[in-house]
Design a protein around this nucleic acid. Structure first.
Length: 426
RNA sequence: GGAGGGAUGUCCGAACGGUAAGGAGCCGGUCUCGAAAACCGGUACGGCCUUUACGGCCUUCGGGGUUCGAAUCCCCGUCCCUCCGCCA
């Protein structure tokens, strides 16, 4: 959510920047409603002042036993409260309308973000290692994972439905090894505090993280209990300090969570995304930071490096892309994607998305910090990044390290976890 | 799932329906070489609005209602605690 006061003070500039994300955006109705609300507010507050003083007078008269005068005063006040209630209702209605508009506006993009509505216009910032050249035609992971007994999509469909994964045998072990490796890596080397959060979130949590109202259709919802299934631990970690005022000395706060993630992926289909590329349920280790306003863009750079470090440790070819204005999530001011090479498709797939959401989520969730003793609280900046999504990473590993016979070499970093250097073991 | 109790500031804690006591802590001061103690003063976080003032409005878990006036009475909800039931 953007700061209404800032919009009021600088509407042209903010509208111009928002239009780089969505040319349809116009702030005029918002400003009109805001103007009207403030006018009514002044009116109603003056009436309330009058009522407060009159009430005090009634109390005084009663104390002094001047009952008749008090009754006369009370009679005079009857209409006043009626009028206040009318105006209050009108102000409340306007406030709701203003909020409705405000919560649907995206964050202001940072000035370093390339302006374009086409996701093709992302900027490749850097690459790691050479693109792997296999001495044979690489197979799609599904074309050998079933044979090797690593995955079983037909049986997963029997249990839940299509696009749900079922890992088994060495596939399950590999997935757990990836999770454990990422978990240990960020605990021990990059210094994030580990968290195992609830997998369900309430409407307020979804709203704060900005899953609501726009992405209502992308998340699973349990109507009976008014709870949403976790679509990404960003949603959950974002709410860890909702409503709090943090000490500036605590910042930056760095958290890491492992969760299963659930997404409806309505409308997703197609040959390109079969197998583990796009599923309703996947595993992810998520990184999250709460920072001050001054440091958040530096913290974004180090967050990206922390996520990259895992890919490097796995010896995978990847690149870092800076997304253009039109391709970022609404809450983000600046986003880097980490994309890993998928040999069978000869293209890159996103395995991590690292964003600085500045004060957008913090304002929704009222997450603040006190810059110094005695100073007014300010909104924190929130940052998130996958570190990483294991399910997609498994695709990269299976396909990059496949042997002609379909077996898979295990990256050095995972051997201690799996106790084998090839899957399945000979 | 059932029955009961509770939620007030940084913390503890009070308030016959009359406009949020008291204490601790914290901040400032006096005293002191300095500190502690003692004493004096300040302290409802926070938010909104404007004529930015010694200003006004809101804020006793959240939302409604009754009333001239609600921390207080009524209704709905959230969270916590106790007991019963169920249970990995």
């Amino acid at each position: 959510m953007l700061d209404l006061k800032a919009i009021r003070e600088n509407p042209e500039e903010i509208e111009r920047r928002l239009k780089t994300r969505d040319p349809e955006i116009t702030l005029t109705p918002l400003l009109e409603k805001d103007e009207r609300r403030r006018k009514l507010l002044q009116e109603v507050e003056a009436l309330k002042h009058e009522r407060n003083e009159a009430s005090e007078e009634v109390a005084r008269l009663k104390r002094e036993g001047r009952e008749e005068e008090a009754q006369r005063r009370i009679q005079e006040l009857r209409g006043l409260s009626e009028r206040i209630k009318q105006l209050d209702d009108e102000v409340a209605r306007l406030e709701e309308e203003i909020r409705d508009i405000l919560v649907r506006l995206p964050n202001l993009p940072h000035e370093s973000v390339p302006v374009s509505f086409s996701k093709e216009d992302k900027v490749i910032v850097r690459e790691y290692k050479e693109r792997p050249e296999l001495p044979f035609e690489p197979k799609h992971h599904l074309d050998f994972a079933h044979e090797l007994g690593l995955l079983d999509f037909p049986r997963a469909a029997r249990i839940a439905g299509s696009r749900f994964p079922l890992y088994l045998g060495w596939g399950a072990r590999l997935e757990m090894a990836l999770i454990q490796f990422f978990w240990d890596f960020h605990c021990e080397r990059t210094g994030y505090t580990p968290v195992l959060p609830p997998y369900l979130g309430n409407p307020e949590s979804m709203f704060t993280a900005s899953q609501l109202p726009k992405f209502q259709d992308d998340v699973y919802y349990i109507e009976r209990d008014e709870l949403y299934l976790n679509p990404t631990a960003e949603t959950l970690l974002c709410n860890l300090h909702r409503g709090e005022i943090l000490d500036v000395e605590q910042l930056p706060l760095k958290y890491m969570a492992y969760t299963a993630c659930f997404r409806r992926e309505a409308g997703a289909a197609g040959e390109e995304e079969r197998g583990l590329i796009r599923v309703h349920q996947f595993n992810k280790v998520e990184l999250f930071k709460f920072t001050t306003a001054e440091t958040s863009f530096d913290e974004l750079e180090s967050l990206v490096k922390d996520a990259e470090a895992v890919l490097k440790a796995l010896d995978l070819h990847y690149r870092v892309a800076l997304l253009p204005t039109g391709d970022m999530a609404a809450q983000s001011a600046k986003t880097y994607d980490l994309e890993v090479w998928i040999p069978s498709q000869k293209r890159y797939y996103e395995v991590s998305s690292c964003s600085n959401c500045t004060d957008y989520q913090a304002r929704r969730g009222n997450i603040r910090y006190r810059p110094a003793k005695g100073e007014k609280p300010r909104y924190v900046h929130t940052l998130n990044g996958s570190g990483l999504a294991t399910s997609r990473l498994m695709v990269a590993i299976l396909e990059t390290f496949q042997e002609p016979d379909g077996r898979v070499r295990v990256p050095e970093a995972l051997r201690d976890y799996l106790k084998t250097d090839v899957i399945p073991p000979r």
